[in-house]
């Protein structure tokens, strides 16, 4: 889905980055929300793609205002609400996402590929800023569970994943910074030969 979470290249957050050292957790509730969220998915009440999609479904103001661990908390609450308050462990027991594939990869290193103009209303790991863009295959990663269906109870449907490098000018136009690129990990369904 197109939403607040898909931040790559957005102009909405212009703040400068200032480095600072810090504790792992800023408050006790952050630490407990972190462990409880991992407990919920670890017990198989939901898979990681459902967890990420529930974060994306939070109200945009909540997404920003509640912060990172607040979003984790909100995601688990939303999934429990979806299930009418029921907590059902054991539904998802395989937490590793890598899968052996029989089908060979469609693309090879150095192939020039184009991302599809794909804008699904549900979960996807194709960021908006690399849709309908041309890049070069950099790495092949084997088969992985497909988040776009796995987040919606529509099965694992594993696919080959590729690191695809996009030149800065292809993404941002003539004003892009010089000799800069972004490499993004993309599922085979997102790609076609250019």
């Amino acid at each position: 889905m197109d939403g607040i979470h898909d931040m790559g290249g957005s102009h909405d957050f212009p703040a400068s980055l200032t480095e600072r050292d810090e504790k792992v957790f800023h408050a006790e509730w952050e630490a407990r929300a972190f462990v409880l969220s991992n407990t919920f998915t670890g017990a198989g009440c939901a898979n990681v793609d459902q967890f990420r999609h529930a974060i994306e479904r939070l109200d945009p103001e909540v997404y920003i205002g509640d912060g990172y661990f607040g979003r984790w908390l909100g995601s688990v609450e939303l999934m429990i609400t979806d299930a009418n308050g029921q907590v059902a462990p054991g539904r998802y027991t395989e937490h590793r996402a890598a899968r052996e594939l029989v089908a060979p990869p469609l693309f090879a290193v150095d192939d020039i590929v184009k991302t599809k103009n794909y804008n699904p209303p549900g979960h996807t790991r194709l960021p908006g800023y690399v849709r309908n863009r041309t890049g070069r295959v950099e790495l092949l990663h084997g088969g992985w569970v497909y988040p776009d269906t796995h987040a919606h109870h529509e099965g694992e449907n594993p696919e080959h994943v590729y690191s695809v490098r996009f030149d800065g000018n292809e993404l941002w136009g003539a004003d892009a910074e010089p000799s800069a690129s972004v490499t993004v990990d993309l599922f085979e369904s997102y790609l076609e030969l250019a």
């Binding site: 988040p147 994943v161 993309l186």
Partner: peptide, 15 residues
């Protein structure tokens, strides 16, 4: 340096 190439890696899958 301007001659140094910058590669950003966006970890959008499980790698």
């Amino acid at each position: 340096d301007d001659n140094t190439e910058v590669r950003v890696w966006d970890s959008s899958a499980e790698i």
